[in-house]
């Protein structure tokens, strides 16, 4: 076969891995962009997951097999449902507020609101589990009941995922505050770790907003209509 292409030879690989300043900047930009893209893509994945539940909800509602979509308009405990939605929405607002304050160079505000938001989400998970013990219907008694159980499981998974994400950012922040002390705290430092941290927090906050929207939508589905 004719050698038609100029290629590097297999023998002359450098012994050590080196990075130029331009390459480091490129890698950093790519990593920051990855957090942005990854956060949005994750929301896309969750959207399709919950869209599947919404499809199941409306499909079974419209089918109303054997008049068993929702016999006697039975509803999951409304008070607990209200409380879960309120706590999730408040936690999301706290996360958004915290990030806004972080942009204004007040890292402490973000930390406080972040820890409270994590706590809030854990409370919401606890309430969701408690609600499952208080249901006035059997899981397989109707289409509505089935969808509600599905929602509870998926909601717990989503909330725990969100709480985990925010907690890891808060834990990282504690560590970064010691590492980047010379160049300012993680909310202001120009260090790569701090830039990545801020990108991560931004995507996480976006996800919290998404959680609140999902909670609101399904709250309407299960308690209002």
């Amino acid at each position: 076969m004719s050698g038609e292409t100029a290629v590097t030879d297999t023998a002359d690989k450098p012994a050590l891995f080196t990075e130029t300043p331009e390459e480091r900047e490129f890698e950093l930009r790519a990593a920051v962009g990855s957090y942005w893209t990854g956060g949005r893509l994750l929301i896309g994945m969750y959207t399709f997951l919950f869209a599947s539940l919404a499809f199941a909800y409306f499909y079974l509602k419209s089918n109303n097999s054997g008049q068993l979509w929702r016999p006697k308009q039975i509803t999951a405990p409304t008070g607990i449902g209200w409380a879960i939605f309120a706590v999730v929405a408040t936690s999301a607002l706290l996360a958004i507020y915290g990030q806004w304050r972080m942009r204004k160079d007040s890292l402490l505000d973000w930390e406080v609101s972040g820890w409270v938001a994590v706590l809030g989400i854990l409370v919401a998970v606890g309430l969701q589990v408690w609600q499952l013990t208080q249901l006035p219907f059997f899981p397989g008694s109707s289409g509505y009941a089935s969808c509600f159980i599905g929602w509870a499981v998926m909601n717990i998974m989503m909330l725990l995922g969100g709480a985990y994400w925010l907690e890891t950012n808060l834990a990282l922040c504690l560590r970064l505050k010691r590492l980047d002390a010379e160049d300012g705290d993680p909310s202001t430092s120009s260090g790569p770790s701090a830039q990545l941290f801020r990108a991560n927090v931004e995507s996480c906050t976006y996800f919290f907003g998404f959680m609140a929207v999902v909670s609101g939508l399904f709250w309407v589905f299960f308690y209002l209509i």
Binding site: A51, S52, L60, N64, S65, L68, S141, S146
Partner: peptide, 29 residues
């Protein structure tokens, strides 16, 4: 793929938590 995961989850719930997503006689389909 999230739709597959959701569908699988509903099936698992039908078999374990006694929901009726796919059981027509109990309000599913």
């Amino acid at each position: 793929t999230p739709t597959l995961v959701a569908a699988g989850l509903f099936g698992i719930l039908d078999h374990t938590a006694q929901t009726a997503f796919y059981v027509t006689e109990h309000g599913g389909s």
